[in-house]
């Protein structure tokens, strides 16, 4: 079980309200991603749930029990840190067994659970090594192993992949997703990378300046961002935002259209291609559009448009997002 509920959780460091007040429910077995730019309070929020920081006011309940005042050890959660935080003086085996040792589990039981975790994570050959002798990905797995053996109510991940190189990040991302499918335990995952959020989450919580901007499934956020912040944050490359006359024509202060929702060839929009990036599967064009500013447009991978070409474009009408002058989405 791992149902976590935050009720008007507020956190202030001295005079500064880092988190002015958050209400959030996380269902048992859900994979929730907290995403937002650095300094948005997502890590602080995770540390509040973990118990590594005190809340200034509000309550945190886990499975209906008020955990607000309990120390981290008694909350039944496990955490994987950005730096992995492995114990450098212990072997991999002892690292993974440490939470069991703290819980007073018998040595035989410890060994059994360590072996089981090692099997899941492919660490069998490394059990007697020290963390210093492992690669980044292996260290990451040890950190996860240490979390698994506790059989926690929920896993907390604090930007766990940010120290890995790009290729490893993709494969670890998949491993964590598979782990979630197998264990079906609640996971809360903090990242600033919207790709990680989109690919892994059941539910994304977009945070900005300590406030929740929007909560929803990845596709909900993609299809109907609640405001300009979410619109700009979710999706890659970023959504094009257009103000002025064109927006007014749609009855909005700002309109947004994603690069992949602009068709090339015909239409009322025209402009000069400034830069053409061929990725193979796609081509991204930077277009200086007349009266609209610079637009990013996704074209087919094989397209032969070059910088300096003049093209015509049209937005797919049903994919235009409209926002009022406060940045809120219009129905």
């Amino acid at each position: 079980m791992g149902k976590i509920t935050l009720k008007s959780v507020r956190k202030a460091f001295g005079e500064v309200d880092v988190i002015p007040g958050i209400d959030l429910g996380i269902e048992d077995g859900e994979f929730v991603v907290f995403v937002g730019p650095s300094g948005c309070g997502k890590s602080t929020l995770l540390r509040l749930i973990a118990g590594l920081e005190d809340v200034t006011s509000g309550t945190i309940t886990i499975d209906g029990k008020d955990m607000t005042e309990l120390p981290p050890a008694q909350r039944g959660l496990a955490m994987v840190f950005q730096s992995y935080a492995l114990y450098p003086h212990m072997s991999v085996r002892k690292n993974i067994a440490f939470p069991l040792k703290m819980a007073g589990v018998s040595p035989e039981e410890q060994e059994r659970k360590v072996q089981a975790a090692a099997k899941v994570l492919n660490l069998g050959d490394y059990l007697d090594r020290r963390p210093g002798q492992l690669s980044g990905g292996q260290r990451q797995r040890v950190a996860i192993g240490r979390a698994i053996v506790r059989e926690p109510k929920a896993f907390l991940f604090d930007e766990p992949l940010s120290n890995l190189d790009a290729a490893l990040r993709v494969s670890m991302r998949q491993e964590i997703s598979e782990l979630h499918q197998n264990l079906k335990t609640t996971m809360i995952y903090v990242t600033h990378d919207q790709v990680e959020a989109m690919t892994m989450a059941d539910k994304i919580v977009v945070l900005n300046a300590g406030r929740i901007e929007q909560v929803g499934s990845p596709m909900e956020l993609y299809r109907s961002p609640a405001n300009l912040f979410v619109a700009g944050f979710i999706g890659s490359p970023k959504m094009n935002l257009i103000e002025g006359a064109e927006a007014a024509r749609h009855g909005a202060a700002t309109i947004g259209i994603r690069p992949e929702h602009i068709d090339i060839g015909r239409g009322d929009w025209h402009g000069v291609v400034g830069l053409s990036e061929h990725l193979g599967s796609d081509t991204f064009l930077k277009v200086m559009a007349d009266g609209l500013g610079t637009l990013t447009v996704r074209a087919d991978g094989e397209v032969s448009i070059k910088a300096g070409d003049r093209i015509r474009m049209s937005p797919q009408p049903d994919k235009i997002h409209r926002f009022d002058k406060d940045g809120k989405a219009l129905a």
């Binding site: 590594l52 981290p72 950005q82 935080a85 703290m102 819980a103």
Partner: peptide, 18 residues
């Protein structure tokens, strides 16, 4: 010594003494 390692120990159920 990075504070995260001590926090990890706290999450792992260690009390101050451990």
């Amino acid at each position: 010594i990075p504070a995260e390692i001590l926090e990890a120990a706290r999450m792992d159920g260690a009390n101050l003494w451990s």
